[in-house]
C-alpha cells in the first residue's frame, strides 16, 4: 500500500512512476540490520513497503540517537540526489522490512536524460525534505514539555 499524497512515487505521473519502478528491485532486511551508516556513499535509496526503519546519528559514548522512524510508503534516503552523495544519518531496520531498492546512479542518469522526469523527481524529493524539516523544527520547540511553549519560557 503506497499512499498517494506523501510518498515519492504517488505524485509522479504514471509514466514517470513506471520508468522508475522498472529499475527497482525488491529487497528485505531483518530487524536490527544496518542499511547504511553516516558518511558512507549514498548510492541507493529505498521506498518502504512494510516494516519500519530508524534513522540515527552516532554520538560517541552514547547509544546511537534515534532521530526519526520511517514506515510504509516512506522514502528512505535523499542524500543520493545531491553531491557529495554521502549519508548524513544512519539507517537501521527496526522490524523486518520489505522495500523497493533503487540504484542512485541509474536514477540520476534517467533524470539527466529526461529533464521532465528529473524535475518531477527533484521536486518530489524536495517536498519530502521540506516536510521532514517542518517536523524537525516543530519538535525542536519541545511542545509537549512542561509549559508547552519551548525555549525561553
Amino acid at each position: 500500500m503506497i499512499k498517494t499524497t506523501t510518498s515519492l512515487l504517488g505524485t509522479l505521473d504514471p509514466q514517470s512512476r513506471d520508468r522508475l519502478l522498472t529499475t527497482a528491485k525488491e529487497v528485505s532486511f531483518g530487524a536490527g540490520d544496518r542499511i547504511f551508516s553516516e558518511g558512507q556513499r549514498a548510492d541507493r535509496f529505498w521506498i518502504i513497503r512494510t516494516g519500519s526503519i530508524v534513522l540515527d546519528l552516532h554520538v560517541p559514548g552514547r547509544r546511537s540517537a534515534t532521530i526519526e522512524t520511517l514506515g510504509s510508503g516512506d522514502l528512505v534516503g535523499w542524500s543520493w540526489l545531491f553531491p557529495p552523495y554521502q549519508w548524513h544519518l544512519g539507517a537501521e531496520a527496526q522490524s523486518p522490512v520489505r522495500a523497493l531498492e533503487f540504484d542512485a546512479t541509474v536514477i540520476r542518469a534517467l533524470c539527466e536524460a529526461d529533464p521532465v522526469l528529473g524535475r518531477a523527481v527533484a521536486r518530489r524529493v524536495a517536498e519530502i525534505i521540506g516536510h521532514r524539516l517542518v517536523s524537525a523544527r516543530t519538535r525542536l520547540l519541545d511542545l509537549y514539555g512542561p509549559y508547552g511553549s519551548g525555549p525561553g519560557s
Binding site: K3, S52, R63, E68, G71, G73, D74, Q94, R139, Y144
Partner: peptide
C-alpha cells in the same frame, strides 16, 4: 503512537505526530 525523544528500548515510532498520517488508513 510516536514520541519526540525515545528512551532506551522504545521500539515504536519516533517523530512528529503528522508523520503517522502517512501510515493511517482514511479517505481524506
Amino acid at each position: 503512537v510516536t514520541v519526540d525523544r525515545p528512551g532506551h528500548g522504545w521500539l515504536g515510532s519516533v517523530g512528529m505526530v503528522t508523520q503517522l498520517l502517512n501510515r493511517a488508513d482514511f479517505a481524506p
